[in-house]
């Protein structure tokens, strides 16, 4: 983990209430897909955890949705503003388990971490299939960027059918794949858990105090004991997940 004062390079709306922000800083640690950053926001006491969408040279890109006061303040940041950021948090996805043909399933603002993951998997010459679910046409972002990366197939679903396949991500899963990587709202993760035919890794979201393992604010129960979403997570394997109900 590094504590870095980052400079906002870009902060633009890309879908309904959804923003793409690029942050420049002197990052020395190599960042893994599925890791997150924890951003200090003026006027707010707690930092806000946001997953990493992309990393290039000394720039980290994040995508976030305005859901409350903190993210609203974040959305008003402009080029040149600075943000105190804890970088390189969480375990991230384990790429070694992917097999030849990993399937990436994202829902809403659970889509971003899958982008860096797809990029890394493609570097390892994997055949990458992607299914991205959104509520409606206005919420959809960056499906074409997954295609541009070189993913074998990219399917979009919307709940209202305004674009792509009508329904949920689980209505559009391909026949063949070797492993699943997923991130999204908990109901989607549960549905994927039931529908998937292989093993896989799930990225979870939780309210956090610190983001680096000190406060026990984001603990969850798993088959293999208590885990902190911020430290031993946010990525858990299918085999260790213990659903609440």
């Amino acid at each position: 983990m590094q504590d870095i004062v980052c400079t906002v390079v870009e902060n633009m709306a890309i879908a309904k209430d959804t923003y793409h922000m690029s942050l420049m800083g002197s990052f020395t640690e190599s960042l893994r897909p599925g890791q997150f950053i924890n951003v200090s926001i003026d006027g707010q006491y707690l930092r806000r955890p946001v997953s990493i969408f992309n990393v290039r040279h000394n720039v980290i890109e994040i995508i976030y949705k305005v859901v409350g006061v903190g993210t609203d303040i974040l959305s008003k940041k402009t080029q040149g503003d600075t943000l105190d950021t804890l970088v390189g948090l969480g375990n991230g996805y384990d790429l070694s388990k992917s097999g030849d043909h990993p399937l990436l399933i994202g829902g809403g603002v659970g889509v971003p971490p899958l982008y860096l993951l797809a990029k890394e998997l493609l570097k390892e010459h994997k055949t990458v299939s992607v299914v991205l679910g959104f509520n409606s046409k206005d919420d959809v972002f960056y499906a074409e960027r997954f295609k541009d990366l070189g993913c074998a197939d990219v399917t979009v679903t919307t709940v209202d059918g305004s674009v792509g396949i009508k329904g949920f991500v689980t209505d559009a899963l391909p026949e063949n794949y070797t492993y699943v990587y997923t991130c999204g709202p908990e109901p989607m993760l549960k549905a994927v858990y039931k529908a998937m035919k292989t093993s896989g890794q799930f990225s979870f979201e939780e309210r956090m105090g610190c983001g680096f393992g000190a406060c026990m604010g984001c603990s969850c129960k798993t088959i293999t004991g208590y885990k902190r979403i911020c430290k031993e997570g946010p990525v858990l394997t299918k085999e260790e997940i213990l659903w609440d109900d």
Binding site: Y45, E206, C215, M216, C218, S219
Partner: peptide
Amino acid sequence: RFGNETPRIAEAPAGMLNAVGLQ
């Protein structure tokens, strides 16, 4: 002790609420 269910943390003006519950 596992402590309380989540959410255990909330923002507050100039501070925070926690209900970790002695995990």
